[in-house]
Write a protein that binds this DNA or RNA. Structure first.
Length: 428
RNA sequence: GUGGCCUUAGCUCAACCGGCAGAGCAGCGGACUGUGGAUCCGCAGGUUACGGGUUCGACCCCCGUAGGCCACCCCA
């Protein structure tokens, strides 16, 4: 056992996996660009209060999953690593007076998030998200546009069987009344409720709706549905969102029991999940509207909507379907030497080529020529540059490792020759 | 945070009932002293996750800890 290991719930992304993550990040940035979302960065930690106020004091994320940093003695307030991006972005929106920018302000963040959770496959204490937020547009069209952008991400990333779940969870006008109705309904059947569900009746009654306890199925099916108790405004908004989705041709399923875990959501709630995936980590991403959040964090009342897509889970899904490999680009050439001891000559020739912008590897270990060529072949390099006695006359051997041919080339022409060969290689 | 299963070389895995810890792959070297992907041979690699206990004797049984995984809670 090595003396040090990556902390629990974190992991090293070795080059293959790291390349996969960067590929996903590329898809996310491309989509952000196409849909008009501008990239920004927020700090990886904020005042704890930003998350407590923004996400909600009684949510699991704040109550038990927040990665807290104890304040130093001279500081009154503690910090916490960001468990999600929305609160920080909205904090920045308020801080920098973005309500004076042309509305809506569309922003995106890609980066690591942190939650002090019990780890499992696809659930880590440090994980990566693509987050996008559109702040300042109350209309349903931007909701549909956002759901579509997320859906397109999975399509372009190559994740099969992604389903969009859609619901409306009401707003300040209709949700309180519905909650009362729902709570009253379950209270009437309280004796049939399992222990856990009885406790949730007080803390978060909406959660009863997507309980996994089989004893709840019948009860949930007969429970009042939010969709039938939305106010006029929410009903119209939801209908318009669905109409836009239909027009865009994005497949979705209305899921009346879909609720979201964070307090700030209003009206539109959506989730992307993978059908048929074993294990519980089928939630690939989710989001929703948060028309009260900006005000909650000290700004003028401003509507907003956003999503967070979990990149680790996409990586996991791609690995399961075997579509994860990112082909490594081999070096154009490997510089090898006839005299194993003369490392300096190899290093010098490689340096020359690198200065000309070429991707080359120098074989620096003092191994005999055969071994050097062997590793060059296994690297799938196109060429080997053999440095030997002919260097005295200013020449090297340029060997085509695929064709097996080689010829004498003056050192002064080498970069040009290789660059030309590289071009013809790439163009077939 | 709750319950359960697992942990042997860098990786994938063997090791009878409690009786000398092994193989394949990967790495390094040789066969091959200025010419490559194959082949053959060799070398190195281990406190059997860690700490304790039972036993003449523990990879194997018991207890604890850590990590991973699974189901919850919850979520990405």
């Amino acid at each position: 056992m090595p003396p040090f290991r990556a902390p629990r719930g974190t992991r090293d992304l070795l080059p293959d996996v790291s390349a996969g993550l960067r590929r996903l990040e590329g898809v996310a940035r491309s989509l952000s660009d196409r849909y008009g979302y501008r990239a920004m960065e927020t700090p990886m930690f904020e005042q704890t209060a930003v998350f407590e106020r923004g996400i909600g004091e009684v949510t699991d994320v704040v109550e038990k999953e927040l990665f807290r940093i104890a304040p130093r003695s001279e500081e009154a307030e503690g910090w916490a690593l960001r468990p999600e991006a929305t609160a920080g972005i909205v904090r920045a929106f308020v801080q920098h007076g973005m309500q004076t920018w042309p509305q809506p302000v569309k922003l995106t963040v890609v980066g690591p998030m942190f939650r002090y959770d019990r780890p499992q496959a696809g659930r880590y204490r440090q994980f990566w998200q693509w987050d996008a937020e559109a702040i300042g547009d109350p209309g349903p069209a931007v909701d549909a546009e956002m759901v579509e952008m997320g859906y397109r991400f999975y399509v372009e990333a190559g994740v099969p069987d992604v389903q969009v779940l859609l619901n409306s969870i009401g707003d300040g006008a209709c949700r309180p009344a519905y909650l009362e109705l729902l709570t009253a309904y379950f209270r009437r059947h309280e004796t049939q409720l399992p222990e856990l569900e009885r406790r949730r009746l007080d803390s978060n009654p909406l959660r009863l709706l997507d309980s996994k306890d089989p004893a709840m199925t019948a009860l949930v099916a007969a429970a009042p549905r939010i969709g039938e108790h939305l106010c006029e405004g929410c009903t119209a908004h939801f209908a318009a969102v669905k109409a836009h989705m239909d027009a865009l041709g994005v497949p979705y399923r209305v899921e009346p029991t879909l609720v979201r875990g964070l307090d700030y959501y209003t009206r539109t709630a959506f989730e992307y999940y993978r059908r048929g995936a074993e294990g519980q980590q089928q939630a690939l991403g989710g989001g929703g509207r948060y028309d009260g959040l900006v005000e909650l964090l000290g700004g003028r009342a401003t509507p907003g909507i956003g999503f967070a897509l979990g990149l680790d889970r996409v990586l996991l899904a791609l690995a399961e379907t075997g579509a994860t490999d990112v082909a490594e680009v081999p070096p154009l050439a490997v510089v090898v030497g006839a005299d194993p001891a003369d490392t300096a000559a190899r290093l010098r020739v490689a340096s020359l080529l690198r200065g000309e912008g070429l991707r080359v590897r120098a074989e620096l270990a003092p191994r005999k020529l055969g071994r050097q060529l062997e590793t060059a072949s296994r690297d799938h390099a196109h060429f080997a540059v053999i440095v030997g006695d002919e260097l005295a006359e200013g020449n090297v051997q340029l060997k085509d490792l695929e064709a097996g041919t080689q010829r004498l080339v003056p050192l002064v022409d080498l970069a040009h020759e290789l660059a030309r060969a590289a071009k013809s290689h790439h163009h077939g």
